[in-house]
């Protein structure tokens, strides 16, 4: 029961901060709220019993991606113009589409007959994951590393100042 209360608390935090991310007037605040969302997702991972993923979430997302995004905000946006409207004119139709998508998804979820089983208590240790990763998923792992390398080089080339540019 306590687990359930904890789940709901974290869920509410997640949703609220997510709403903040998409609607905050100040883009910097949105960035910070994104951090909060990612943290609560990590909490949800913990509740679901995947500690390793929670750790990866915090390290990679909060430590890596979020930092990157905040840097980008500071590079491109003058923080002084925080009063600029942050949502575009297509707000109404966007709300409609979002609600319809939500409705469709909920309808699917509720309609589907799912075996009423509880989540298992089996804990997966990082060493299990590591073994699985390097025994069964070596090729995708290596491909992923190449992808990251390509993304790295691509990003450098794209973001580098062109010659002759001030």
């Amino acid at each position: 029961m306590s687990e359930r209360i904890l789940f709901y608390c974290i869920a509410v935090i997640t949703i609220l901060s997510a709403v903040g991310v998409v609607s905050a007037r100040n883009i910097f605040h949105a960035g910070l709220l994104l951090g909060s969302t990612l943290f609560s997702i990590a909490g949800l991972y913990l509740i679901l019993g995947t500690e390793f993923l929670a750790a990866v979430q915090v390290l990679l997302y909060v430590g890596g991606i979020l930092t990157l995004i905040l840097f980008a905000i500071m590079l491109t946006v003058k923080l002084s113009d925080k009063s600029i409207k942050q949502t575009s004119e297509q707000k109404g139709i966007s709300i409609c589409i979002s609600i319809v998508i939500f409705g469709i998804l909920c309808g699917c979820i509720l309609k589907t007959e799912m075996a009423n089983i509880s989540k298992s208590g089996i804990m997966t240790t990082p060493s299990d994951i590591g073994k699985h990763l390097f025994v069964y998923e070596v090729l995708p792992f290596e491909l992923l590393s190449i992808l990251l390398l390509v993304a790295l080089i691509g990003a450098i080339i794209l973001a580098r100042k062109e010659e002759g540019e001030k």
């Binding site: 297509q90 139709i93 966007s94 589409i97 319809v100 998508i101």
Partner: peptide, 9 residues
């Protein structure tokens, strides 16, 4: 993007 998601719907 509206076309994309609206299209899905």
């Amino acid at each position: 993007a509206i076309g994309l998601f609206g299209g899905i719907v």
